[in-house]
Computed example of a mutant assay.
Amino acid sequence: MAKPLVTCLWFDGQAEAAANYYCTVFKDSKITQVTPMVVTFELNGNKFMGLNGGPQFKFDEAISLMVNCDSQEEIDYYWDTLSKDGGEESVCGWLKDKFGLSWQIVPANLGELMAEPERAQRVMDKVMQMKKIDKAALENA
Rank of each mutant, 00 (worst) to 15 (best):
I105C: 03
S64C: 14
K47H: 15
G45E: 09
N20H: 13
I63M: 12
D134C: 10
A137D: 04
E116H: 14
A120N: 15
L138R: 00
T81W: 09
V38W: 09
I63N: 10
L9W: 00
Y22L: 05
V39G: 08
S102N: 12
C23V: 09
T7W: 13
L82V: 02
V39W: 00
T32Q: 07
E88Q: 14
G53D: 01
P55I: 14
N68Y: 11
I31G: 00
Q104W: 12
M49W: 01
N140E: 15
N68S: 14
P36N: 10
A18C: 06
N44M: 03
F26P: 08
Q72S: 08
G53H: 07
V91W: 06
V38S: 09
G54L: 12
E118C: 04
N109C: 08
A120W: 12
K58C: 04
M1S: 15
C8I: 12
L113N: 11
W79S: 03
L95M: 02
P107I: 01
A18I: 05
N20G: 15
T40S: 15
K30N: 11
M49K: 11
M37I: 12
D80W: 02
G100R: 02
C8K: 06
D60Y: 06
F41R: 01
A137H: 06
C69I: 03
A108L: 10
P117E: 12
L82F: 01
G87E: 02
Y21I: 04
K84F: 13
A137Y: 07
G86Y: 00
E89H: 08
N68W: 01
D76T: 08
